[in-house]
Simulated assay, not measured.
Amino acid sequence: MASETEILKALSRIIDPDFGKDIVTLGFVKDIRIEDQQAFFTIELTTPACPVKEEFRNQAEQAVLALPGIERANINMTSRVRGGISDKQAIPGIANIIAVASGKGGVGKSTTAVNLAVAMAQSGARVGLLDADIYGPSIPRMMGLSGFRPEVSTDGKTIFPLENYGVKTMSIGYLVEENKAMIWRGPMVASALGQLLGDVAWGELDYLFVDMPPGTGDAQLTLSQKVPVTGTVMVTTPQDIALLDCRKGIEMFRQVNIPTLGIVENMSQFICPHCGESSPIFAEGGADRLSQEFNTVVLAHIPLSMPIRELSDKGTPVTAALPDSEQAAAYRLLAGQVARKISVLNSRKIDIPIIMQG
């Protein structure tokens, strides 16, 4: 009969591709016991959205079943998302804050943020989504929560987020009429964003995604100054004018010591709804060139697809409405890539200006 030591030795041959070390050295393997020719153990990953989770499970099963006297491997796959270290005041209970940003409006940033959040929640993570676009909030409609109002504590100091598709959400759009224009100066925007960050009962979250307004103004500065932002996901289309503004966004976050996790090339290809043919109507290869310039990576190429637009308008993100579709698969891939970048970044436990390398 194999021993616990032999099981650990067998599992030490499994290498995590992101950390470059084996899962035993990384401390992923826990609670080993052997009963009646069965091996029981837990593999605790750094995120439930780990892209190689099933690969780890299969490798671990094969490694243990190859040992003498083991006829069955019972593997419990779990995860514990860790936060990083920062000198800024963290929001209690929130491990990671990720800004979803763009230099330019109209590139599909909010659509990306919504589907990224839902896809991450579908992986089993505890997820929140904050709408930081005070002038043009779109999260209420995209998340199917238009017309709903959040509850407020009896003392009026705490707001409780609204939840849909497994994602806790907050937006200024819940607090004002949908068609009302917010004619506010910068200090009022900063104050409102500060309240949406600090006065909301988010609870325990692995990831809080912040849907930023376009540009490099008050909202971006407020977020970077008030809370420890783990990193940014930059959204752009392939065309040169969008890439120009995305470049400015990356530079701005770098100046405030917030790393870029990577770039999402949205509307990468137009998918014809009749024949399925792909056409690069906004040019192609722009995000790849930009990623090389800033030594970062392209996290995903998201197509320009009618179902994504139609379902967003209806308040049913494609990741929730059509989970088996190619479009939803692209967002799940994005969620996995974002999760693994965050895990690697937090493992470094440093707080310096850096752009994630591929």
Rank of each mutant, 00 (worst) to 15 (best):
S153L: 11
S153F: 08
S153R: 12
T154W: 14
T154A: 15
D155E: 13
K157L: 13
K157T: 15
K157C: 01
T158A: 04
T158F: 07
I159K: 07
I159P: 04
F160N: 13
P161G: 05
P161S: 12
P161N: 11
P161W: 04
E163P: 01
N164S: 13
N164E: 03
N164H: 11
Y165K: 01
G166F: 09
V167H: 11
K168Y: 09
T169S: 09
T169L: 13
T169Y: 10
I172A: 07
I172Q: 08
I172R: 03
G173Y: 06
L175F: 13
L175P: 00
V176Q: 09
E177D: 15
E177S: 14
A181I: 05
M182P: 00
M182C: 13
I183K: 10
I183R: 11
R185S: 07
G186T: 10
G186R: 07
P187L: 12
M188S: 04
S191T: 09
L193I: 14
G194Q: 09
G194W: 05
G194S: 15
L196K: 02
L197A: 06
L197S: 02
D199N: 14
D199T: 02
W202R: 02
W202A: 11
E204Y: 09
L205F: 12
L205M: 07
D206H: 09
D206T: 05
Y207H: 06
L208H: 02
L208Y: 08
F209R: 03
V210R: 00
D211T: 14
D211H: 10
D211E: 12
M212D: 01
P213V: 05
P213E: 12
P213F: 03
P214T: 14
P214R: 10
G215P: 12
A219N: 06
A219V: 13
L221W: 01
L221H: 04
T222W: 01
T222N: 10
L223A: 10
S224W: 00
S224E: 05
Q225R: 08
Q225F: 04
Q225Y: 11
K226N: 14
K226M: 15
K226L: 13
V227Q: 00
V227A: 06
P228W: 02
P228F: 06
V229C: 08
V229T: 07
T230M: 13
T230K: 03
T230E: 10
G231F: 05
T232Y: 09
V233Q: 04
V233W: 03
M234F: 01
M234A: 14
M234L: 15
